[in-house]
């Protein structure tokens, strides 16, 4: 029996969460696995907090993931990672972008912002979890396209122990999902994400 792999992907609306959940799903399908995801539409406007559930395995039933049962949490923004870390199972793995998007009314100078970042990081460290901080923005720029931050995170999450899809399968799926002219830069971003996690380990 294939054990169901449960993961949560969260961030702020418009960050490209759906694209990576699509790529994971396409890759899983190619491996003969089923995927069941759950999203919320409607009031979730651009800029709101967004969460997507993904279950990968066989004979999947309910689409949502209860608190405390996700093997992995992927965060596109640190506040959102903190907001949804409750979905992680004890000793689960967190892949989070170092990006912090402060609520728009937040008025601080650089020093205070750095302090706030430190405090979020500190709070994330309080949980019984294996947290990887990824400089998604920096690595995406390094790959050559700021929009590939989500793909950097995809590369990173592919290295998490127990994740049921191999990185090569994700590469194949990626080629099917991103615009042809951007395949090269996306593959580069993907590999930089992989390296970033390996360096952390």
């Amino acid at each position: 029996m294939v054990e169901t792999y449960q993961m949560v992907i969260c961030g702020v609306g418009g960050q490209g969460i759906l694209t990576i959940s699509d790529i994971i799903t396409i890759a899983a399908q190619m491996k003969g696995l089923n995927v069941l995801g759950s999203e919320v539409h409607g009031m979730a406007q651009k800029g709101g907090s967004v969460i997507t559930n993904l279950k990968i395995g066989k004979n999947l039933n309910s689409p949502t993931i209860p608190i405390g049962t996700s093997k992995m949490l992927v965060g596109f923004e640190q506040n959102e990672t903190l907001r949804y870390i409750k979905y992680l199972q004890p000793r689960g793995t967190v892949i989070t972008s170092e990006t912090v998007l402060f609520p728009i009314t937040w008025k601080k100078d650089k020093e205070a912002a750095d302090k706030a970042r430190e405090s979020i990081k500190g709070n994330l460290g309080k949980f019984d979890a294996n947290v990887h901080f990824i400089d998604a923005e920096g690595l995406a720029n390094q790959a050559g396209l700021a929009l590939t931050q989500n793909i950097v995170l995809l590369g990173a999450l592919s290295q998490v122990e127990g994740f049921p899809i191999a990185d090569n399968d994700l590469r194949e799926a990626l080629k099917l999902r991103v615009p042809p002219k951007h395949i090269e830069v996306n593959l580069k971003a993907f590999d930089l994400g992989i390296k970033a996690v390996k360096k952390n380990n």
């Binding site: 800029g47 709101g48 405390g68 949804y84 402060f102 979020i120 949980f127």
Partner: peptide
């Protein structure tokens, strides 16, 4: 264990309401 972590996260995170 899970309930405790829920309470803890609720204290930290800024509200991000949907906006126009």
């Amino acid at each position: 264990e899970i309930e405790r972590s829920v309470e803890e996260t609720n204290d930290f995170v800024p509200f991000r309401p949907p906006l126009f």
